[in-house]
Simulated assay, not measured.
Amino acid sequence: MVERVTATEDALRLINTLINIHGSLMFHQSGGCCDGSSPMCYQLGEFRTGESDVLLGEIGDTPFYMSKDQYEYWKHTQLIIDAIDGRGGMFSLEGPEGKRFITRSRVFTEDEMRQLANS
């Protein structure tokens, strides 16, 4: 099965660290500049999602949402969430850990696009 969002080992380790500190988590990536273009990590339910959000999947047993508008730009790509050294978004939970989540991506193959269309 083709996944719309995946995570690197570094990101999964950071997610596990944050779960141990904060409990269940969620991610949301909106569009725009500054923090809005980064994946933001919250305690589960801290960020209210609605009809304008798309659930892309889960990484590390953590739901990952994206705004519909942003999804229209990214729907042909697989998001690969990574963690690197540095300060994250000011509202994202990883900031005090000296790490930040970033989004990498790759374009789906034609076969993967067909699989996604049929799912």
Rank of each mutant, 00 (worst) to 15 (best):
R100E: 03
S105E: 08
P96T: 08
P96H: 08
D82V: 06
K99G: 06
F47V: 04
G45W: 01
R100F: 04
L12D: 02
A11T: 09
T109W: 04
T8F: 06
I80A: 10
N16Y: 07
M66D: 04
D82K: 01
R87I: 15
R100Y: 00
Q43V: 15
K99C: 11
R48G: 10
E9K: 11
L55I: 08
K75Q: 10
G31L: 09
I59V: 13
M26L: 12
V107M: 09
T49M: 05
T103L: 09
D53W: 06
Y73L: 14
T6W: 00
G88F: 01
Y73I: 14
T109C: 04
L55W: 00
Q115A: 12
G98C: 05
I102E: 01
G89P: 13
V5R: 01
S30I: 08
G98H: 02
K68H: 05
N16M: 14
M66L: 09
A83F: 01
R48Q: 13
T109A: 07
I102K: 02
E94K: 11
F27M: 14
L14D: 07
F91Y: 15
T17M: 14
F101K: 07
F101S: 04
P63W: 05
G32L: 08
E51G: 15
D10A: 15
Q70I: 03
D69C: 11
G88I: 06
F47R: 08
D69E: 14
S30D: 10
Y73C: 15
S30N: 10
I15C: 14
I59F: 02
V54Y: 02
G36Q: 05
C33A: 13
N16V: 15
E110I: 13
R114M: 11
Q43W: 00
G95P: 03
G45Y: 03
V5M: 02
G60S: 12
I81K: 06
Q78W: 04
L55A: 05
R106L: 11
D10P: 00
R48L: 13
L79F: 12
T17Q: 14
G89N: 09
F47Q: 03
I81C: 05
G31S: 10
C33V: 14
A83Y: 03
L93Q: 01
F91E: 15
L55M: 10
T17H: 12
M66K: 03
G50E: 01
T103A: 12
E110A: 13
E51P: 11
P39H: 00
I19W: 01
Q78S: 08
